[in-house]
Simulated assay, not measured.
Amino acid sequence: MENMKTEQLYSLYKPVLFSLAYRMLGSVMDAEDIVQEAFLTIYKSGSDHIQNMKAYMCKIVTNRCLELLRSSSKQREHYVGAWLPEPLVTTASDETDPMQSYLQKESVSTAYLLLLQQLSYVERAVFLLREAMQYDYEEIAGIVGKSSANCRQIFHRAKRSLRVKYDPDHSDRLDQEQTTSLVEQFMYALASGNAAQIMKFLSTDAVLLTDGGGKALLQPLHGHIRISRSVTDFWKKFTEHLTYRIAMVNSLPGIVVYMDKKTWAVISFKVQDGRIDNLYFVANPDKLTHVH
């Protein structure tokens, strides 16, 4: 394959392939690796025999994701504390990037990814291939090794499950300025160390989930009082060492926190009815190597 053709394919298909792999795995680094492997496979084997390049590459990526998920299932089972997806952090300078433009149109919020993780591996693949990639059931059957009728059943079961628990059309498309303003006000209240002020931005039954990979708080915190007191105490203790910036985290406003100028945590939110409903706190350093 000529280099120019490879570059054109990469530019054209990387966004959709990365989106598929990231939502399958919840890992930025693994998704990047699998997409690179897919293009390397095409480069080595050539493309003359491929009639539908997008479908062919999605099949490669899906199968590689399924292999990785199955091989790492034991590791996930023994993960210490809450598991959260690796945060996908972008800035205003990334807006011209075709991949970021594509992802802005997709449901990649932390809350949505966590629900996808509750599906079985095959359910997740079938759902994404049908919902996001618009494949017909015959094509999906060829990818996941099930009958088309079975794939149809799997898809409808997965869609019902997700719809009951989460409505991405509502939760992921709230007014951007309003959500950004809420996140900024929350951070200002946090920086001031005022627990009572922080509580105003949290729903009464808010939940704080921390993914520290065994290196940070393990148990979820429930309720606006406990959360506000806990984060205020922590912030006061380390305030001289902490700085932060507002960023787009999984296509929604979030926060990158630095400890002594090094990336220390990424916080994303689920906002509902003008209040912060869930806080997702990723502090596992292994999941932050790509965040600057």
Rank of each mutant, 00 (worst) to 15 (best):
V207L: 10
S203V: 03
G26S: 05
Q219A: 12
T41P: 03
L128Q: 11
T110S: 13
N194E: 00
R160W: 09
L84P: 07
D211T: 03
P87C: 06
L242E: 05
P285H: 07
V291D: 05
S11W: 10
V282T: 15
R226H: 11
G81A: 05
V122H: 04
A92L: 13
I140F: 04
L128A: 00
Y13T: 01
K165T: 02
Q178T: 14
M248S: 15
E106P: 03
V257S: 08
I255D: 05
S47R: 04
E2G: 12
Q197V: 00
M4P: 01
L20W: 08
H241L: 09
R76V: 07
Q176Y: 14
L40H: 11
Y22C: 04
A141Y: 02
Y22L: 08
C65V: 06
K262R: 14
I154E: 07
S47P: 00
E139Q: 15
D286T: 06
A206D: 07
S147M: 09
Y56K: 08
N194G: 00
P98F: 07
Y10P: 05
A38C: 13
S147V: 02
T204I: 09
L113K: 08
E32Y: 10
D211Y: 06
S171K: 00
L209M: 14
G26F: 06
K262V: 13
P168T: 08
Y56C: 02
D211C: 09
Y166K: 03
F281P: 04
L68Q: 10
H224W: 00
Y43G: 00
F127Y: 15
E184M: 01
V126I: 05
V61K: 06
D205W: 08
T96Y: 09
D233G: 12
E138D: 12
H156Q: 12
E86T: 05
I42Q: 01
L288R: 06
H292Q: 15
K237G: 11
I276N: 00
Q118M: 12
F186Q: 01
P253K: 13
L242R: 03
A216R: 12
H170Y: 15
E95P: 04
V16K: 11
H292L: 12
I225V: 14
A111L: 03
M133Q: 13
I276C: 03
L162G: 04
A283R: 13
K200G: 00
H49K: 15
L162E: 06
V122I: 15
D136K: 10
P285S: 04
R70E: 14
L66D: 06
A149G: 09
Q100Y: 14
Y258W: 10
W83F: 15
W235K: 01
M99C: 10
S148M: 08
F155H: 15
S71T: 07
G223V: 06
L182S: 00
L202V: 08
D30S: 10
I198P: 03
P220D: 10
Y280V: 06
L115P: 03
Q178G: 04
L68W: 11
K237S: 14
Y10R: 13
D30N: 12
R275G: 04
I154A: 08
E37Q: 12
R160I: 02
D172S: 01
Y56I: 04
L9I: 11
V266W: 05
L12T: 14
